[in-house]
Amino acid sequence: MPDLSVLIQHYGYIAILVGCLFEGETVTILGGISAHQGWLSLPGVIFFAGLGGALGDLTLFLLGRRYGERLLARLKRDPARIEALRDRVRRHQDLAVFGVRFLYGLRLVGPLVIGASGVGLWRFVLFNLLGAATWATLFVVGGYLFGTVLARVLGDLEHHLLWLLPLAAALALFIGWMRRRRI
């Protein structure tokens, strides 16, 4: 079986891109740790994390533009809360697009609501890219710094990754499951 670091070096960027399409925080932090270890480049991890986050949000935004009313009606959330959110989005479009990825519980439903709220495509693309770049930089650098702390505490991280990676994957799945339950 190939060494774990070799697998990360070969498939790490695509894993970050795909992981950030759906759930990003855990993936970006692991990408930052991988950059700290020298298996991936820090700018490369930031780029692919930001790209994955931006593409995931763009997909949800486009679904919101096309099917927003039907999708929002099927959510288990209070319709009055959804309408209040839509009203805020209409009043503060740029801030809503930029900041939605930072608001826990709105990462998936937020772009749908924004798409259904009449925000223009190019405005969304611009502020979504700015938000994704900021988000990716913050979380990846946070993971990089966390890797520094882990290396000081645990020593050789590669030895510990055999249990850290499954633990992080389980945490990511749990967070995703919890988010879906709240929608």
Rank of each mutant, 00 (worst) to 15 (best):
A73N: 04
A132R: 08
F174C: 13
V149F: 00
R70P: 00
L42Y: 03
V100F: 13
K76I: 05
R66S: 12
L112G: 00
L103S: 02
R77M: 01
L85K: 03
A170P: 09
L145G: 02
L40T: 12
R182G: 14
I16C: 14
D57N: 10
R101K: 06
F124C: 04
G147S: 08
F47Q: 03
V141L: 15
D57F: 03
E158D: 11
T134M: 00
G12R: 06
M178T: 13
S34I: 01
R70L: 00
T59N: 01
E83S: 08
G105M: 01
M1S: 13
W39C: 12
L55Y: 08
L62N: 02
L167C: 13
L42E: 05
I33W: 05
C20D: 05
G31N: 12
E23T: 04
F98G: 04
V153Y: 05
R179S: 13
H36Q: 14
Y104I: 10
R179N: 11
V6E: 15
W122T: 15
G19Y: 10
A96T: 03
I114F: 03
Y104D: 02
I33V: 15
R101Q: 11
T134Y: 00
V153R: 05
L42D: 00
R101L: 03
R74P: 01
L85I: 09
N128G: 04
V6P: 00
A132P: 06
V6F: 11
A96W: 04
W177R: 13
L62V: 14
E69P: 12
S34N: 06
G99Y: 00
D156A: 12
V18A: 15
I16P: 09
F174W: 15
D57W: 02
A169F: 06
W39M: 13
V18E: 14
S5A: 14
P166I: 09
D87E: 14
A54C: 05
D57C: 08
G64L: 04
G12V: 13
I29V: 15
L71G: 07
G12I: 13
